[in-house]
């Protein structure tokens, strides 16, 4: 069965005040589940970044609802291979923290 991965949204001293950890999740396979854990004291709502690098539209959120502080999201499941960039739609500041999920199929892990 697929694996489950976590991306934490942690408080940070950077300008945005938060950071994704890990900012790049790799390797991930089709069917794996990814949940976001909001360790921040404000809500977050990560979603796919479109081709122009703009904040995600309502059709491309990772989850239906924003993630309240100190809670977790519902899972996001990659259905296709590719590299997915994401950012927080609630963060309207320029150049908000971004992250990447690399969906690259199942590869052999060295023993």
């Amino acid at each position: 069965m697929p694996f489950t991965w976590q991306i934490s949204i942690n408080r940070s001293r950077n300008a945005a005040g938060y950071v994704y950890a890990p900012a790049v999740l790799d390797p991930v396979a089709i069917g794996d589940e990814i949940i976001f854990i909001n360790n921040d004291s404000t809500p977050h709502w990560p979603g796919l970044v479109d081709a122009t690098g703009m904040a995600p539209s309502s059709a491309t959120y990772f989850m239906r609802y924003q993630i309240p502080p100190h809670t977790s999201s519902t899972p996001w499941v990659p259905g296709v291979n590719g590299t997915v960039s994401f950012a927080d739609s609630l963060d309207t500041k320029p150049s908000p923290p971004a992250g990447t999920i690399v969906v690259a199929g199942i590869t052999t892990v060295p023993e």
Partner: peptide, 16 residues
């Protein structure tokens, strides 16, 4: 029910 959102491409997602 436990909801999940699945990608249908590298740039779109869909509740499921």
């Amino acid at each position: 029910c436990d909801q999940f959102t699945a990608s249908t491409s590298a740039t779109t997602s869909k509740d499921g």
